[in-house]
């Protein structure tokens, strides 16, 4: 309900703003640039928790706000080509070359979950879930290397999540995306690989003695990986509207899925929506 209201408000705002803005002219000055996109989509986006089922209609409506801001070497950006992006990123450009660069990034790499809330809202109760502690989102700082050509983007992040998780929480995230065109479509094919240190996997998948119960025995997780493949398409409908659709298949290693918490090993996410470009 709230999401739809927000969507409606944003669409109304978009209509009003369309009269005021020249199409996507993002450059206000040499130093300051911005771009804003709003997306309303039908989506199938299950969480990593097996017990959390998508049952309400609102679970299939997604509203996305894609804000990119850049001032000199500081920036806020959203990776709109990874359909399952968790949040925006803020960063600072350390090195900027013709086809590569190095940035300092602050972002989230793992979405958290609240077992109590899941138990509260699910008809199907899972014994022991309510005893688990809440898992916070995994945010941290990263050094990112990017290689980019007209149709290719490759990023490699080395991130520390010590700020939000345990001391030895770090990861390596690699992502490659290739753009190809068919008629007026832009099609992005992407593949990602993430390595998580044992402390990260253990924070989300592990069960401490305090959390353990008959159905949730103590579980100490090893390090783990995530592999994802994605195909994503964009089609222009007008100067301000585009149609977007995509599917992402994600695989988590057994160090996640072996956990008694009940984490999915395979997740398929799909969506189709409309974007308004300011």
């Amino acid at each position: 309900m709230r999401r739809l209201l927000i969507a409606l408000f944003l669409l109304l705002s978009a209509n009003y703003a369309a009269a005021e803005h020249v199409n996507d002219e993002m450059t206000n000055s040499d130093d300051f640039q911005w771009q804003l996109m709003i997306e309303v989509a039908l989506e199938y986006n299950p969480t990593i928790l097996e017990t959390a089922e998508l049952d309400g209609f609102y679970n299939f409506i997604g509203v996305g706000l894609y804000l990119d801001l850049s001032y000199k070497d500081f920036f806020i950006q959203t990776n709109r080509h990874r359909t399952n992006t968790l949040a925006g990123e803020f960063g600072y450009r350390l090195v900027e070359q013709h086809d590569w660069g190095i940035d300092l990034i602050g972002t989230f790499y793992f979405i958290g979950f609240d077992p109590e809330a899941i138990d509260r809202y699910n008809d199907k109760k899972t014994p022991g879930v309510a005893k688990l502690d809440e898992r916070n989102p995994g945010g941290g700082l990263a050094l990112r290397y990017s290689y980019f050509t007209e149709d290719v983007l490759f990023t490699a992040d080395l991130a520390s999540l010590q700020g939000s998780l345990d001391n030895n929480s770090w990861l390596i995230d690699l992502y490659y995306s290739h753009r190809s065109g068919y008629k007026n479509w832009d099609v992005y094919s992407g593949i990602g690989f993430t390595y998580y240190s044992a402390d990260i996997v253990n924070y989300y998948a592990g069960i401490t003695p305090d959390e353990s119960s008959e159905n949730m025995p103590v579980y100490q997780a090893d390090d783990g990986i995530k592999v994802e493949a994605q195909i994503f398409g964009l089609y222009p409908l007008s100067k301000n509207w585009t149609f977007s659709t995509g599917i992402t298949q994600t695989y988590y290693s057994s160090s996640f899925s072996d956990s008694p918490v009940g984490l999915r090993q395979h997740i398929t996410m799909a969506k189709a929506g409309l974007r308004y470009v300011f």
Binding site: D24, M26, Q33, D68, F148, L153, W241
Partner: peptide, 17 residues
């Protein structure tokens, strides 16, 4: 011919797609 996104030559990486 019109377009949705204007290509920016500066900071191309930021707006690569």
């Amino acid at each position: 011919v019109s377009w949705v996104h204007k290509t920016s030559s500066r900071k191309r990486r930021w707006r690569i797609f």
